[in-house]
Simulated assay, not measured.
Amino acid sequence: MEKPSAALQHTVRLSERSGLWKRVRQYKMMYLFLLPAFIVTIIFAFIPMFGLIMAFQDYTAVQGFMNSPFIGLKHFQNMWSNPEFILGLKNTVFLNGMLILIGFPLPILFALLLNEIRSMLFKRVSQTISYLPHFISWVVVAGLVYKLLEEDFGSVNLLLQALGMEKISFMREVDYFRGVFVTTVIWKELGWNSIIFLAALTSIDQDQYEAATIDGADRFQKLLYITLPGIANVIGLMFIFKIATIFGGGGGGASFDAVYNMGNPLVADASLTLDYHVYLAGIRHAEISYGTAVGLVLSILSFGILILSNRISKKISGYGAF
C-alpha cells in the first residue's frame, strides 16, 4: 500500500484542526466552564513540579533553586539506607493492601444491598447515613475512636470488663492498632465509595431483569449474570485507581490525615507510613530535599503500578482506564 503524499497528510491535519476549532466554537460555553479547573490544575499541579529539582540539590531557602548546590542522587541513596523509610514502605504497603483487599469489595457489596431495597424512603435514609462519615474531619473521627477505645474509661473496654474480660490497649499496641485503623478507614469511606457503583447499577437496562424473570431466573442468577457483568467495567476502572494508591496518596486509604490523627508514638512501628515520613523529614526536620526525593519516588512507584494494573486489567477483562 502506498504511503499518503505529503500534500494529503497536510490536508488531513488541516481538516483535523478545523474540526477541533469548530467543536470549540460550538461548545464554547462548556469550555469556558472547564477553563477555571484547567487554570487551577496548571497553577497547583504542574507549576509546582518545578520544585522536584530540590530532590537533586542540597536545598536551602536562603540559596533558593538557582544557587543551591547539586548533589546528584545522594538523597535517593540515603533513602534506601534509611530504616525509617523501609519501615514506612512496609507499613504503607500493608495498610493500603489491607484496605484494598477488604475495603474495595465492601462498597460493591453495600451498593448491591442498597439497590435491592424497595422502600425509597428507607433507601435514601440508609444512603445518607452511610455517606455522612466521609464528611467528618479525621480530627473528630480520631477523637471519637480514642474515646471509645480508651483503656480505663472507654465504652468498649467498660463493656469488656462488664463481660468479665480483660481490658485491651487498642491504641497502644501495634497489632490492635492495625485492625482499628483499617476498620475505621473502611467505616468512614464505605458509603462514599459505594456512590459510583450505585450510579453504575442504575445504567443497567431493566428489560434484562424482566426477561430473566420470565425465563425463571432467581435473584442470585440475576446478580451473577446481569448485575455484575453490567458494572464490571466500572469495577475494573475503580480497582485500577484504587491499587495505584498502594504506595500512598490518599484515595480513602492510609492517607496522611488518617495516620497523623490516629497514630501515636507507642504504635509508630505500625503508623509510620511514607506520607508521614515525608512530613517528618520535610517539615519537622527541615530536610526539604530529602522529603522531595521521597515524594518523587512515591509518585514514580504509584505511576508505575497504575500502568501495570491498567495493562493487567485490559488483558484479563478487556477494560482499562486508558
Rank of each mutant, 00 (worst) to 15 (best):
L32H: 07
L198V: 01
Q206G: 11
I42C: 15
V259F: 05
K123G: 00
L112M: 13
G143I: 15
I71L: 12
K90W: 09
E16S: 05
Y27S: 13
D207S: 14
G230C: 13
I129Y: 09
A162Q: 09
T92M: 12
F181K: 07
A37L: 09
G263F: 10
I196V: 12
S169L: 14
D207H: 12
N157M: 05
R124P: 00
L163K: 07
P265D: 06
V139H: 08
G320Y: 03
D257W: 10
E210H: 04
L144T: 05
T245C: 10
K242T: 08
W187A: 11
Y209E: 10
K167F: 06
Q221N: 08
T202I: 10
F70T: 06
M30D: 11
Y279L: 10
G72W: 14
F170N: 01
A45E: 11
A286P: 02
K222S: 13
Y146M: 15
V294A: 03
R284I: 12
R118I: 12
I312T: 02
Q221F: 05
H10T: 15
M238R: 11
F322Y: 13
L301N: 05
L73R: 11
M30K: 12
P4S: 06
Y209W: 06
I100T: 14
V234Y: 00
A142W: 00
L101W: 02
I307F: 15
M1Y: 08
G216Y: 04
S81P: 05
T184N: 05
A111Q: 01
I186H: 08
F247H: 01
L237E: 03
G164H: 13
M1I: 15
N78D: 14
Q63V: 04
M171P: 02
L113Q: 07
A37Q: 07
K90V: 10
E116N: 14
R25E: 09
I240K: 01
D175A: 07
I71V: 14
Y31F: 14
P229G: 04
I305S: 05
L87S: 08
V174N: 15
A111I: 02
D218P: 00
S5W: 00
I129P: 03
G216E: 01
R25L: 15
V140G: 03
F239S: 02
N115G: 04
I235F: 01
Q57V: 06
I129G: 09
G250Q: 03
V93I: 13
K188I: 11
N67W: 12
D257P: 11
V156P: 04
W80S: 03
S15R: 01
A232G: 02
W138S: 03
G164S: 09
V259G: 02
Y319A: 09
H134T: 04
S126V: 13
E151A: 12
I231Q: 02
Q208I: 09
I136N: 04
M165N: 09
K74C: 00
G304Y: 04
Q77G: 00
N264Y: 13
G88A: 14
R17E: 15
Y131C: 09
L198E: 02
